[in-house]
Design a protein around this nucleic acid. Structure first.
Lengths: 332, 332
DNA sequence: ACTTTTTTTGTAAACGTTAACAGTGGGTAA
DNA sequence: TTACCCACTGTTAACGTTTACAAAAAAAGT
């Protein structure tokens, strides 16, 4: 395992010079640079960035912590982050919490041990003990949140305007002639889901639509029973003519049930989802949904983190992206 | 940023003793251990595993390289790997190649720089320059492949019996009475897709079914034109009564088209996919598919890597998992 | 030729940890 | 008493880099 020392011996130069070559220092002559590079190639030299990190205090690694890797939205955001970070010469390490705040804590500590230069995180549904975030702040580890934030924090964040998303989705259904719309709501603990619901309610209000509590349909964690409950809802209220689900998967549930009841979509009932998940375009009928602009969110998050890494100034920013309605057959 | 040096100063003990406490060395008295742990907590000590890695040569980090994070199969496998590795006290870092062999190379080199203790990889579709694998071998970095292997290599691997998968899927269709089955084939460069196709062909042969070249339907990279081509296939051969797709997504394509043509599934045409992707259970009708046992594959891969890490013996193993048919409404 | 400046190179200490080796001191056996 | 073992603790030199500082060499100015 060749090191900088071996190259120094082979070239007759000092450690410092070799180091400078690999750090693209301007203060080394072209001739020596060439010589060093040549010898380095011969020895199959691979820089030990761990050692460099130890000495310099900068690991050039940033940690990304998300609830679930296997989720279209998070996957796309991560890809956006990755792209930007690689340009800046940073490695990213991805970990998932599986929605467990214990795991979240554990992984964040793991990040600290690995001496990451920064952390990007979208929190779990169950709120995490905020002390860890304070700890990170004390240690001056730059942190940026995206999409899901803890209820109280003092870091930068990049989020989607979920309220707007709920609103445009609902407004679209109203514009298409729906009179009796039901919202399939998400977990109460997650602020983005609350926002989508508020967007829904506000849209109804703005259009002077009546509103009754059954129009907020709350989900359980059991997917099978959800199905049954939705089914019951439909028989209880046969004049329902629109659904806005807080997530594409739940829109799929509804569609599934409606199809089995031979309901005409979109003529009798129209459906709008949320997320623009990849399968939505392949359904029959294809699903109208709200696009979250994942990629852009990833890039913006990465940029924000970089700003924090580069300057020690503690300027917290709150950036809000606007969602976009993607109209497809299920509502048209 | 407290280090063991600070703890040593505070407790009056030596560096070695502190280090021993954090390495669970048996040769340290209960009393001192307590004292050290107490002071460590007070100072908010976080071990610097980078420094430990530098000194010991073991980073306790393993690199996982997959084509796409946002893919149900890979996501699940990674979760399996993660679970096992955490038990062993290892961190995993996940990177994606986006099917680019250039990126694959880059990420592998990145892993080497980070001094990972081992690498788990599922290769890209385009074959990668095999010299990198030789290099890893020379550096004695343990490597285990899963699911997708390079054509030639000398490392351990864990794969699915894709041939078997193709066969049981096809046999199932035959058992259900299908006489004219078409296989939606995958990328010719990927051996697992070849295997699935061979399983299909062998099943036909075993049952003395006729076979014509149009029964292998080759996909392009453009999803829109795929759809059109499938449509044409159906009009050219109206007596087709079964489809076996090499992936669930393509099964969905077919279902989509059939539905728009008002074909009765499964009574007129039956469909089987591959992958047991999460959406398959939510389709209408739900999709029969082949389960790849992702989780088990992940765990097995992790175990195999651990064996390589722990013993220097170079015993290459080839482990093959058996797929399982999940029968649902699309073929029943 | 002789400073002075600029460019290039070298020296050496540090980063936080580990581990081989060398103590220390109390207890037991001779 | 001495010798020896044991459980525990300490000393110290690494691991592969970076970086302030010092030094030398080259270039430029007089």
């Amino acid at each position: 395992m060749a090191s900088i020392k071996d190259i120094a011996a082979r070239t007759g130069l000092s450690l410092a010079t070799i180091s400078r070559v690999f750090n693209d220092s301007p203060k080394v002559s072209a001739k020596t640079r060439q010589k060093v590079l040549k010898v380095a190639a011969e020895l199959h030299y691979v820089p030990n960035i761990g050692a460099a990190a130890l000495r310099s205090g900068k690991s050039r690694v940033i940690g990304v912590l998300i609830p679930e890797i296997n989720n279209h939205f998070f996957g796309e955001v991560v890809t956006g982050i990755e792209k930007k970070m690689k340009n800046w010469g940073y490695n990213i390490i991805i970990s998932q919490t599986h929605e467990s705040s214990d795991l979240e804590l554990e992984m964040l500590e793991s990040f600290m041990k690995l001496n990451v230069d920064g952390i990007i995180i979208s929190t779990t549904k169950e709120p995490t003990d905020p002390t860890i975030f304070k700890k990170l702040k004390d240690k001056k580890v730059p942190v940026v949140f995206f999409d899901r934030l803890p209820p109280v924090h003092s870091h930068s964040s990049v989020i989607l305007d979920d309220h707007e998303g709920g609103q445009i989705a609902t407004q679209h259904l109203i514009d298409q002639g729906c009179k009796h719309i039901v919202h399939i709501a998400g977990d109460k603990n997650v602020s983005i889901f609350q926002q989508r619901q508020r967007g829904f309610e506000d849209a109804l209000r703005l259009n002077n639509h009546p509103f009754d509590s059954h129009q907020i349909f709350e989900l359980t964690t059991d997917t099978k029973s959800n199905k049954k409950l939705i089914q019951k809802l439909l028989t209880d209220h046969p004049d329902i003519d629109g659904f806005f689900a807080h997530g594409d998967y739940y829109a799929l549930y509804v569609m599934d049930i409606l199809k089995s009841l031979n309901v005409d979509i979109p003529n009798k009932i129209k459906i709008v989802g949320f997320g623009n998940t990849d399968f939505t375009d392949h359904l029959q009928p294809s699903l109208t949904t709200v696009d979250q602009n994942c990629h852009q969110m990833g890039q913006l998050t990465a940029e924000t983190l970089m700003k924090h890494i580069e300057s020690d100034e503690i300027i917290h920013s709150k950036q809000v992206l606007t969602p976009k309605l993607v109209v497809r057959d299920s509502s048209n």
